[in-house]
Design a protein around this nucleic acid. Structure first.
Lengths: 141, 141
DNA sequence: TAATTAAGTTAGTCAAAGCTAACTTTTCAA
DNA sequence: TTGAAAAGTTAGCTTTGACTAACTTAATTA
């Protein structure tokens, strides 16, 4: 039915796995358990389990001992996750936080931020960038 | 030993319980399981268990079937948590988010925000308040 | 003051998300 | 081409933080 949105609701953790898999796939055409393990700083069996769950939800396919590839639906979701991720990272950067902190804070908020607030955040980034806030961090005392 | 800081590290969840208990205690002189349950939207046994953990860590005392009161150390910690909470709430308000969202986003970040970033955030709030950003929310398109 | 209701407690269940240990498959180099 | 190393898998454990069901204590009110 038109207009019907099949909301796939993942946990924050599963969103991280999907997002990372998508990143590697964009770079190399596929991703593997091992690189996700290294990237996300979790052990191989943790990745294995997560990938199985994403497979059950039809967000990706995983050939035993082989490649991981996102499905169409997985890509659609991951695209949105990644753009949210990037947006929030830029948001904190434009507020003057360093890269490490911007990544940390962004990575937490990306799982809970409301879709309706994204335009506002984008507008804020644009505004702050124009003011060069990131380049002229506040003196804090 | 002077200069030695005994870092009590709580989970985000336990921080929420301690913070809420402190809020009620400031208002009424003590807190109770039931009001924490209502306030935090969890069942009575969940509060009970959390309170026991905070008691083990000597952050509060709890008389069976009775009052909850923070210890000196509990108050010191809770004071810091609460001020972080308020700061982040104000931060999002000053960026133009509504109260509900400001609370939500603040409540997530308060458990992970770096102590060193607080002065920056305070400075940002001050700056944004002066510019009246909260009152003139961005047109998002 | 006895009975009912509200609050608090205890025990045990569940899901999420990590882990280790032990095993299997694949890959690569001698 | 074979055998060691790397990658992947499986099973089962652990912690956190919620829950329900059943019970006990305290408070209230008829």
């Amino acid at each position: 039915m038109k207009g019907y949105e099949n909301k796939i609701k993942l946990t924050g953790s599963l969103e991280d796995y999907l997002e990372a898999a998508y990143m590697f796939e964009k770079k190399n055409g596929f991703s593997r358990i091992k690189e996700l393990s290294d990237f996300l700083n979790v052990k191989l069996p943790s990745v294995n389990k997560a990938i199985k769950q994403l497979e059950r939800r039809k967000l990706l396919t995983h050939k035993r001992y082989g490649y991981i590839k996102l499905t169409k639906g997985g890509k659609r979701l991951a695209d949105n996750l990644l753009s949210t991720h990037d947006m929030l990272f830029n948001f904190f950067i434009s507020l003057g936080f360093d890269k490490k902190k911007s990544l940390k804070y962004g990575c937490y908020l990306e799982h809970i931020i409301d879709e309706n607030d994204k335009p506002k955040i984008k507008a804020l980034i644009k505004f702050l960038k124009e003011k060069n806030y990131g380049d002229k961090p506040f003196k804090s005392d």
